[in-house]
């Protein structure tokens, strides 16, 4: 078949555009459907009171707080460890057998199904370390799950800093650590925050890792310590959608809307921080 190159080009562009537009459709539909069905349920009472009547009425306050605790705990654990190992891998590690195994393990860690993390958390944190089914065990499990995301994003951010900056700093007599601390980290912080944003989203949304390690079916009160169980939004959503009969559609979609809204808010906070850092960037 002989086609005019210009026609071929137009056709190709049209296909690419179509593919791109196709991405927007599901995202847009999800948001529209959830807002449409969930918005009527949102009220001050829904956000700040405990579930009532076997979770068929009342609010979802304990689950909101539970998810907040779990996500913060996971980030608190995974961000420093992930960042430190990313610094080690990109700045210090030599290209040897051992380090290649470490890198391979991180890639594999990212591919482990989330329910396996749940079982692992149950075995290690709940049973072996005797944390019990608790916020601590759940946060650590979620933290391990998001480690590869944070490590990979941080490594990419660190490696994107031009090596000439490092060389100049070292040539001025600065130590390797000074170079990392004052040159490399400040110039990679926005990429590291991006990794954290992705981690937050993942940690907030997963059900399987918290299923055996922290999530409570129904606790109408707030936790007192990190060794208490909590309710969490994704698990609560699962429970009211499949385990409890006759929960109104409004409450279910309302819960989903709150979950999405929370992830969005946390991301927004991280994006604002990242923007502040980017503004300072000088190259």
């Amino acid at each position: 078949m002989n086609m005019n190159p210009r026609t071929t080009q137009k056709l190709a562009f049209a296909f690419f555009l179509l593919a791109t537009l196709l991405i927007i459709v599901p995202v847009g539909l999800i948001v529209v459907v959830i807002i449409q069905k969930g918005l009527p349920a949102i009220s001050w009472e829904f956000l700040t009171s405990v579930p009532k009547k076997g979770m068929r009425a009342g609010g979802i306050f304990p689950a909101i707080i539970g998810t907040l605790y779990l996500v913060s705990g996971a980030i608190l654990f995974a961000l420093p460890i992930g960042l430190f190992s990313a610094i080690y891998l990109s700045e210090y590690a030599k290209d040897n057998y051992m380090n290649r195994i470490i890198k391979l393990s991180i890639v594999n860690l990212a591919g482990v199904p989330s329910v396996v993390y749940g079982l692992f958390g149950l075995a290690l944190f709940v049973d072996f370390f005797k944390f019990g089914v608790s916020i601590l065990a759940g946060s650590l499990t979620l933290g391990i799950m998001i480690l590869p995301i944070i490590i990979t994003a941080s490594r990419e951010a660190l490696e994107a800093v031009p090596s000439s900056f490092r060389e100049v700093s070292l040539s001025l007599g600065a130590s390797k650590w000074q170079t990392i601390r004052h040159i490399v980290l400040p110039n990679s912080i926005s990429g590291i925050i991006t990794g954290t944003i992705l981690g937050i989203g993942r940690a907030a949304g997963e059900t399987a890792p918290i299923l055996f390690t922290v999530a409570a079916f129904y606790i109408p009160k707030l936790p007192h310590s990190i060794f208490d169980q909590v309710m969490a939004l994704p698990y609560h959503l699962y429970v009211i959608s499949t385990q409890v009969p006759n929960v109104s559609e409004q409450i279910r979609y309302g819960t989903a809307l709150v979950l999405i809204g929370m992830v969005l808010l946390m991301n927004l906070a991280a994006i604002i921080i990242r923007y502040q850092f980017r503004k300072k960037k000088k190259w």
Partner: peptide, 21 residues
């Protein structure tokens, strides 16, 4: 090595300012 490089400065082939003022 830090002291050595402090006493022996180096200017590279390309202008390489650090990302500061």
């Amino acid at each position: 090595v830090g002291l050595l490089r402090k006493k022996i400065g180096m200017v590279f082939a390309l202008p390489l300012p650090l990302p500061f003022t």
